[in-house]
C-alpha cells in the first residue's frame, strides 16, 4: 500500500506536485493517469526517495521507502528505460542490482527468461531498442519479487504483443495481493488494465475512482437527429428532463430520451427523420474533458470553449 499525504514538490517557483493525497491499495491495479507534465513521474520518484518532497510525505507499507531494510523487495520500480549504464550487459546490470540485496544469480536468470531477454542478455545495453530497454527495466523491477510494483509508462515502445504481456503480468501480480501503480497518458490502455484510476492534472488529483465509476460518469447518453423539420421536432420535447441542442440547421442533439422514444414520437407527429444515432462519449473523450483545464502543454485551439469547461466541471464533480 502506498499512502501520500499532502505530498508537494516545488522546483523554484513552479509547483510540480501540489499537496496530493491518495492511497494505492494492494490487490488491484491502480492506474496513474494524466497529461504530460501533470506530475506523475515526479510523484513516483518521490515514492522511492529519488526526489525529496518540498512538503508532505509518502509511505510504502507504512514506512518511508528509505526506512525499509530491503527496499528492492518492498518496491520494484521502472522509472524510465534509460536508468541503466549503456556500457554494461543486461545480465551484468541485473547481477549488480541483485547483489545489493544478496539476491541469487538464479533469480537474475529467472527474470531474464520472464521478460524474454535471453537472446540479448549478454549484449551491451547501449545497443538495445526502446522495447528491449523497457523489458530490461521491468526485469530489474521484478528482481526482488517486490510487494509493490511502480511502473512509469511501461508499455512505451513495446509492440502489441509486449503491451498485452505487460497487461497480463500486472493483472497476475495484483491477483497475488501485490500493490501495482501504473502510469500512462493513454486512457484506452488504462481502461483495459486498471481497476482503479488516479487522475492527475497540473500536480493535483482531479479524480480518484474505480474505472467503472469513471466510465459511468463519463458516458453521456445523447441522440443525434437529422431532420428538415428541426424546430418542429424540438417543440415536441419541452420537458425539463430533456435537453435539445441545435448545432446545425437540420441537426439536433437530444439528451434524456432514447433513440426509440424519439423515433416513435416523430412518427406520431409525422416528422421525417434522416438520421437517428445514439452517441456516447468514449473513455478517451471523458479523459480529455476531465483534463481539459489541466493540460500544461496544449497544442492550441479550443482553449476557451465554455461548454467544454462546463462539462469538465460536471465530470470532475461526479467522480470525486
Amino acid at each position: 500500500m502506498i499512502q501520500a499525504q499532502s505530498l508537494t514538490k516545488r522546483y523554484g517557483r513552479k509547483t510540480a506536485v501540489d499537496a496530493v493525497d491518495f492511497t494505492v491499495q494492494p490487490g488491484r491495479v491502480t492506474g496513474f493517469l494524466g497529461p504530460n507534465g501533470a506530475g506523475k513521474s515526479t510523484t513516483m520518484r518521490m515514492i522511492v526517495g529519488l526526489d525529496r518532497p518540498s512538503h508532505g510525505s509518502v509511505t510504502v507499507n507504512g514506512k518511508m521507502y528509505r526506512e525499509h531494510k530491503a527496499p528492492l523487495r518492498e518496491v520494484g520500480v521502472l522509472l524510465d528505460a534509460k536508468a541503466i549504464h549503456t556500457g554494461r550487459s543486461a545480465y551484468n546490470h541485473l547481477l549488480a542490482m541483485a547483489a545489493t540485496h544478496s539476491i541469487p544469480a538464479s533469480r537474475v536468470k529467472e527474470v531474464i527468461e520472464l521478460t524474454g531477454l535471453e537472446s540479448v542478455a549478454r549484449k551491451r545495453v547501449g545497443g538495445f531498442s526502446l522495447g528491449m530497454g523497457q523489458r530490461l527495466g521491468i526485469a530489474a523491477a521484478l528482481l526482488g519479487d517486490p510487494a509493490t510494483l511502480i511502473l512509469d509508462e511501461p508499455v512505451n515502445g513495446l509492440d502489441p504483443e509486449g503491451v498485452q504481456w505487460v497487461r497480463n503480468l500486472v493483472r497476475h501480480l495484483a491477483g497475488e495481493g501485490r500493490t501495482i501503480l501504473l502510469s500512462s497518458h493513454l486512457m484506452s490502455e488504462m481502461a483495459v488494465t486498471a481497476d482503479h484510476l488516479i487522475v492527475l492534472g497540473r500536480g493535483r488529483v482531479i479524480a480518484d475512482a474505480p474505472v467503472a465509476d469513471l466510465i459511468g460518469a463519463a458516458t453521456r447518453k445523447a441522440v443525434r437527429v437529422r431532420t428538415p423539420y428541426a424546430p418542429e421536432l424540438a417543440a415536441l420535447f419541452p420537458g425539463p428532463d430533456v435537453s435539445v441542442t441545435r448545432s446545425e440547421n437540420d441537426l439536433l442533439e437530444i439528451v434524456g430520451l432514447s433513440a426509440a422514444e424519439i423515433g416513435n414520437q416523430a412518427a406520431r407527429a409525422g416528422i421525417a427523420l434522416h438520421e437517428l444515432t445514439p452517441i456516447s462519449a468514449s473513455l478517451e473523450e471523458a479523459y480529455m474533458a476531465l483534463t481539459q483545464n489541466d493540460v500544461e502543454y496544449r497544442t492550441g485551439g479550443s482553449a476557451d470553449d465554455p461548454a467544454a469547461e462546463h462539462r469538465t466541471a460536471d465530470l470532475q464533480e461526479s467522480v470525486r
Binding site: 490487490g27 530491503a70 518492498e74 540485496h101 544478496s102 539476491i103 517486490p146
Partner: peptide, 9 residues
C-alpha cells in the same frame, strides 16, 4: 496482501 520476504540490503 502480498508480504515481501527474503534477503535484505
Amino acid at each position: 496482501t502480498f508480504v515481501a520476504s527474503g534477503s535484505a540490503l
